[in-house]
């Protein structure tokens, strides 16, 4: 436990001093502002294009923007922020293994499980802070310009996103326990996402896949209710736990 706390503090210090935390939070802030901004600008863009389009015979009606458009942008833009976070953290384990910075600490009795778990905790902390910051900003602007009460289940939808991000972070933990570089780790994460997307083509499986958690728009519109996401949420949490539990013995055996 002592090792875990000491190493966790080291991780946080690393995030702060290497400015990684600041940059990631800036990304989440930008995305948080972009969501309502894009929604707000959509009618303006249509106006500008209207002349061209009418020449081609397409007539646009009056576009009415609501908070739902802003939250639809949230769903569209969040993957980008998550990808930036995953790329930033892809080498968090492997770079320490290959550089040998862990050796002095491991030979002092720091357990490898502490290393795995405290880095996981630091990543979860960053993801949670970033995601909810982004959520808060989008929430504030959407309410300022329109009315959030027209959109359902905002908090739950964001929780689903959080859980999906947790799964992807646990993929980093798992692939890092045997990969040689951050690029390999990210390749593994990409493969997992690709496999989930492929499986999602099969409509019967869709409801149970973690990717379901990213599908927030039906929830916003009230077409689906939180209980429709329960199966996917439970499965995602279970897979995340299994990935971390598998990573512990694998890291234990790993050559550092």
């Amino acid at each position: 436990m002592k090792g875990f706390i000491a190493f966790f503090e080291k991780e946080v210090r690393e995030l702060v001093r290497t400015k990684r935390l600041l940059i990631l939070l800036a990304v989440f802030v930008i995305v948080g502002i972009m969501d309502p901004a894009v929604a707000k600008l959509t009618p303006k863009l249509f106006e500008l294009m209207a002349d061209d389009l009418s020449e081609q015979g397409i007539v646009l009606g009056e576009v009415k923007v609501t908070a739902l458009d802003s939250w639809t942008q949230f769903v569209k833009n969040m993957p980008m922020a998550l990808i930036v976070l995953l790329i930033m953290f892809g080498g968090i384990y492997t770079s320490e293994y290959t550089k040998g910075t862990l050796i002095p600490l491991l030979t002092k009795g720091l357990s490898r499980s502490s290393v795995v778990l405290s880095k996981l905790a630091a990543m979860l902390l960053t993801w949670s802070a970033g995601l909810w910051l982004c959520y808060g900003i989008t929430y504030f602007y959407s309410d300022w310009y329109w009315d959030n009460s027209a959109v359902n289940r905002l908090g739950f939808a964001c929780f689903c996103w959080w859980l999906f991000g947790v799964l992807m972070i646990c993929c980093i933990v798992f692939f890092s326990s045997f990969s040689g570089s951050g690029a390999q780790v990210l390749l593994g994460c990409g493969a997992v996402y690709f496999a989930m997307t492929m499986a999602g083509m099969y409509s019967k499986a869709k409801e149970y896949l973690p990717t379901r958690l990213c599908d927030s728009v039906p929830l916003y519109k009230g077409e689906l209710v939180p209980s429709d996401y329960t199966a996917a949420a439970v499965i995602t949490a279970a897979i995340s736990a299994v990935l971390v539990l598998a990573a512990l013995p694998l890291t234990h055996r790993r050559q550092v």
Binding site: I23, A26, V29, I30, I33, M34, P36, A37, K40, Y141, W144
Partner: peptide, 13 residues
């Protein structure tokens, strides 16, 4: 209200 914070964050980055 949208543009000012966006510009500030982007320019500091």
């Amino acid at each position: 209200p949208l543009l000012i914070p966006l510009v500030i964050v982007q320019f500091s980055l």
